[in-house]
Design a protein around this nucleic acid. Structure first.
Lengths: 221, 221
DNA sequence: TATTTTTTTTAGATTTGTCTAAATTTATTT
DNA sequence: AAATAAATTTAGACAAATCTAAAAAAAATA
């Protein structure tokens, strides 16, 4: 596989994330996402089109082709493996690792990533619960649902968190909730949508609907 | 501390290595070291002088000042910690890690390096036996001598290897010699300068003078 | 010391990625 | 459908890092 510049990789990654939500992407939303000007985006689109990484007709929006998606998945893979390393091996809090992984994801060695993955035990999900694509770009899937809609008395495990701010982290730390935590919802208060939950070896506690809406879980086997 | 570009850091590091041998550095030798043109070196020298990292009078050579040396030591520190990580944690052969560490050394986070160092157990020497500067730029010293001049029957430990090519690595692997290996020189053949050595749990073997001249050791306590 | 050679610097281009401002195309409203 | 607004692209510029070729300075040699 060819090598791309850090800037190209960043554009490709952002397009990839945007086109998951809305099939074709437009210039302004990419400019907003990347905090740059629409003109810069247009410039880069021409380069990426020349390198055959995306479909693009001027004024008509754009989307990554298969090659482009593979490149994007490679960058996402590296980003999430490094995040896992930073949290699990170096002990960073998960809300601190993003900017560092943004740099590490552009280190080019394939052998490095192969060995890093093995060293980490081939994790399937990063510390935020986001899936880590495998070497072929395959993304592990998991049947997730929002904690706010989980039925009472079912045992579920936290698999990801939507809002990844320091404020949310602080909140979750206080409640002893992290990726992998097992939770049972014991009551649902109609009035404000808040939940009473039970975590193993913790006293019961109440979560606001706002928090619950940002926590995603899967059913335990 | 300010941030510098990857290119600036690479120039600073190369100047640092060159000025260890010859107090003041000249344009052509830096150009050769960095595999670039003398004109490019002059361009960069002006930038580094503006940023107050080196003493430089045109046509008169140049050298890093104290600020420049600190920056250089920071880069060297990062390079060697990453090399240690790549060899000790990811299982790379030591002759494969240099180009990867050349990329990793430019990752900017200080917190990352602090935690990486702690994770690695604060090593003092990298896998080639080169010293790792501490957070303040202090370089651990060790009283080294060349294996070719070690007196007979003294127990010594390999601390570094001068020639770090794949060919040398292959040779040393064959003899079961690495950084940290304990060696006793049992005979010295005047004819060709070759040595008979004994390594714990290995049969005695003969090293050519050429190999011995590239191996550095220190006396055991 | 005068000449030649070597080293170093300058001058002028080039590439990559960015910018602002103006022009163009598309979309939305009267 | 015409006018207006919004989105997008082009034109032209700039900074960083590089290059080649020419000029200038320093060093070596005759």
């Amino acid at each position: 596989m060819l090598n791309y510049t850090t800037s190209e990789e960043n554009y490709i990654k952002s397009i990839y994330h945007l086109q998951k939500d809305s099939d074709t992407v437009n210039t302004n939303s990419l400019a907003a996402e990347m905090q740059t000007s629409a003109a810069s985006v247009t410039d880069m689109l021409k380069k990426l089109k020349n390198k055959k990484l995306l479909q693009y007709e001027r004024y008509r929006g754009f989307k990554l082709n298969e090659t482009g998606k593979k490149v994007a998945l490679g960058v996402v893979r590296k980003h999430r493996l490094w995040e896992y390393f930073l949290v699990e091996k170096l002990g960073f809090d998960w809300d601190k690792v993003h900017p560092i992984a943004e740099e590490l994801e552009h280190i080019s060695s394939d052998e490095l990533i192969k060995r890093l993955e093995h060293f980490l035990g081939s994790p399937s999900f990063d510390p935020h619960g986001d899936p880590i694509p495998d070497r072929n770009g395959k993304i592990p899937v998991i049947k997730q649902l929002c904690l706010s809609v989980v039925p009472l008395k079912h045992s579920v495990t936290v698999s990801s968190v939507a809002n990844q701010t320091p404020q949310m982290l602080e909140m979750l730390k206080h409640y002893h909730i992290g990726i992998g935590t097992t939770i049972i919802v014991t009551r649902h208060f109609e009035f404000d949508g808040s939940l009473e939950i039970k975590i193993l070896r913790q006293p019961s506690c109440i979560l606001s609907e706002q928090v619950a809406k940002n926590v995603f879980v899967h059913y335990d086997q």
